[in-house]
Design a protein around this nucleic acid. Structure first.
Length: 658
DNA sequence: ATAGGGTTAG
């Protein structure tokens, strides 16, 4: 009934445009035609008909014609402008947008805050934030919508500082924030370019939110959760999550992503399980699955990853590019390159990220030449390499020791693709050259950097010094590192390793003291292994594992047998001042050895043992695992923080070079 | 009066 009525009304009022529109669309002589009509009819009718005409032209995608009609329309309505602005954004046409804006500025709506909001949004979507700022500044009556529109634009381009500054002005003027304001202002805390302490700012805004009662709004709270997540404040994030009166699948996903991104993959998987069991109204989507796959990668949970893959297929999420890239990475990082390759091969569409995923998995397995080949193939297929592509391919060169290839790729980066090398690329090059004992060249790279060398760069150099026992350079690199990240215990440990390698025990002791006086602790080593779809984690300091005694006994027996065959425990890696026996005991307690022992005890003969570790493999664990792979005739795949080690028959795929 | 927001791949 209602439909019929409205269409009758529609027919009455749009009678003219029904006549005009088809003619205009085909004949392309709109202006004179409309002008003629204009003078021949009562003005009121024409006014409405031209507005209708403009609007239907917009809806039909004939933006150019709509603007032509606009110039002959004396009284365009607000709705007409709104639709024109919307169409310009839709068609990504700056020139048309400017034209409409110019027209609007000379109309009665020049100060209309509603349309100002729309203009700001339009310029933002077109990528012209300067224009958006200008509209904002020229609009006298700044409603909360106008403020929010600019905030949104500034947050999207990463002008956090400017946003927070304006937010301060807004508060000072007495304009009250709404729930949208808070989401943008929170986002400002995580986007770059902030000179103030952004976490502090986030907490301040958190207080505002509580004070003004926005802590029940699901969007605001999810954004807040994400802010804490991005700063690595996992406990704050989970507090916010727990305090949310209502949760939906986005809130769950944000919390899962928080764990996955902050090296807590087990927590992420647990939360995912909880979501599936307890929150039946929160159905995971592709975004959730990406985080879950990341978590599977994190602990090398291959069996679980396969289950997730099946779920993705059932849910029809298998054509979404980010999901597929995450799948490729998951398979690769779980040690199954072939399965990753298969996902890639079956993709109907690929983007640069899909290629990057594939390159990176060959890279972490040490197949540098293959990674370069894929990189070249990608370019051959017309996909332009991205900033990340170069990180992955240079990383692949570095894992495989392909110095000349790496240098050429690094050099081509800017020459061919106009991509300036960033910190990650420099760190890769320093790593590549440093490992190859070309320390002079590595230093040259650092000296020629366009950026101030950061901790990753000095860290790569320090790592190279450890391999090649260069005490002098190690001291130089570590003094920089202690300045840049004084609380990163890993750097002190590396320097101590260098001293230990040079038998400089006094210096080792001093570094250890430095660690103690600054009350810093090494990140505890942690390893995971998956047995029969369950993931087991091993921690060098925890005693909770029910099998711990059995594992210890197993390892002691193993160690005795290995010693008979020439194994010498590398007690150098233990930095504490203890007697040899005690050091050996500590070595045997390393999480990776516990995981290997657990795998040997709990899996069938011939089954590959897969282990993931949160840190770099220690020398002793590396040597022992090589030994075991031959001794127990087992393939053992260990992924450490950098790359894969594929142990088979007493040899490691990294060629002892990691 | 209208309008707009949160999680995501390497």
């Amino acid at each position: 009934m209602w439909v019929l009525q409205s269409s009758q009304i529609g027919r009455q009022t749009t009678f003219q445009s029904h006549l005009c529109y088809p003619a205009l669309a085909s004949s392309r002589l709109p202006v004179s035609f409309v002008a003629l009509n204009h003078s021949a009819n009562p003005e009121k009718d024409i006014k409405s008909s031209n507005n209708q005409l403009i609007q239907s032209l917009c809806r039909g995608g004939n933006l150019k014609q709509a603007i032509q009609v606009l110039s002959s329309e004396l009284n365009p309505t607000q709705q007409t402008y709104e639709l024109l602005i919307y169409s310009c954004a839709q068609q990504s046409s700056l020139s048309n947008g400017l034209e409409v804006h110019r027209h609007l500025a000379n109309s009665v709506f020049s100060q209309d805050p509603f349309l100002a909001t729309k203009l700001i949004n339009m310029y933002n979507e077109l990528g012209y934030v300067d224009h958006a700022r200008k509209v904002f500044n020229e609009t006298q009556e700044k409603t909360i919508y106008v403020w929010n529109a600019l905030f949104r634009a500034l947050a999207m381009v990463g002008c956090g500082e400017e946003l927070l500054d304006l937010y301060g002005q807004m508060n000072w003027m007495g304009m009250a924030s709404d729930r949208f304001t808070y989401t943008y202002v929170l986002k400002a805390c995580v986007v770059s370019d902030l000179t103030i302490c952004p976490l502090q700012k986030g907490k301040e805004i958190h207080a505002h939110i509580l004070r003004h009662g926005f802590d029940t709004n699901i969007h605001v709270m999810t954004t807040l959760l994400d802010v804490y997540a991005k700063f690595g404040c996992v406990s704050y994030a989970s507090f916010v999550f727990g305090a949310m009166p209502v949760k939906n699948f986005v809130s769950w996903s944000a919390m899962i992503a928080c764990y996955a991104k902050n090296e807590m993959p087990m927590k992420a998987l647990e939360l995912f399980q909880q979501m599936m069991l307890e929150a039946s109204d929160s159905v995971p989507n592709s975004v959730t699955m990406v985080s879950v796959l990341q978590a599977c990668s994190g602990v090398s949970a291959l069996q679980l990853g396969k289950l997730i893959h099946a779920y993705i297929l059932r849910r029809g999420l298998d054509s979404i590019l980010p999901v597929l890239s995450a799948l490729i990475t998951m398979y690769g990082r779980c040690g199954e390159i072939a399965l990753g390759q298969r996902v890639f091969d079956n993709m109907k569409k690929r983007d640069v990220v899909s290629w990057n995923s594939l390159i990176s998995i060959y890279g972490i397995h040490g197949f540098g030449k293959k990674a370069i080949q894929i990189f070249e193939n990608m370019i051959h297929q017309g996909v332009t390499p991205s900033y990340i592509s170069f990180i992955t391919v240079l990383g692949a060169c570095s894992h495989a020791g392909l110095v000349e290839e790496g240098k050429m790729l690094f050099e081509s980066m800017h020459r061919k693709y106009r991509i300036h090398p960033g910190m990650e690329h420099y760190a890769c090059m320093v790593d590549l050259l440093g490992r190859a004992n070309r320390l002079d060249e590595a230093i040259k790279v650092i000296e020629d950097m366009r950026l101030e060398p950061g901790p990753t760069v000095w860290g790569s150099l320090l790592g190279a010094c450890r391999i090649h026992c260069n005490v002098e350079l190690a001291e130089r690199a570590s003094s920089k590192l202690f300045e840049l990240e004084p609380t990163n215990a890993g750097n002190y440990v590396l320097l101590a390793d260098v001293y230990a390698g040079a038998q400089m025990w006094n210096e080792v002791k001093n570094v250890r003291k430095l660690l103690e006086t600054r009350s810093l602790q090494k990140i505890p080593g942690c390893s995971w292994t998956e047995v029969k779809r369950k993931i087991y984690s091993f921690n060098s300091v925890d005693e909770c594992n029910p099998q711990i005694e059995e594992l210890r006994a197993f390892l002691i027996k193993l160690s005795t047998e290995m010693k008979e065959r020439g194994y010498v425990p590398q007690t150098d890696v233990v930095l504490y001042d203890l007697d040899e026996e005690e050091k050996e005991r500590i070595l045997l307690g390393h999480s990776e050895k516990l995981a290997v022992a657990f795998g040997l005890i709990n899996t069938a003969k011939g089954e590959t043992i897969r282990i993931t570790k949160n840190l770099r493999l220690c020398e002793d664990c590396h040597a022992v695992t090589k030994f075991i792979s031959k001794f127990a005739n087992r393939e053992i795949l260990v992924r450490d923080v950098n790359r894969f080690h594929h142990f088979r028959d007493g040899v490691c795929s990294c060629a002892d070079y990691w």
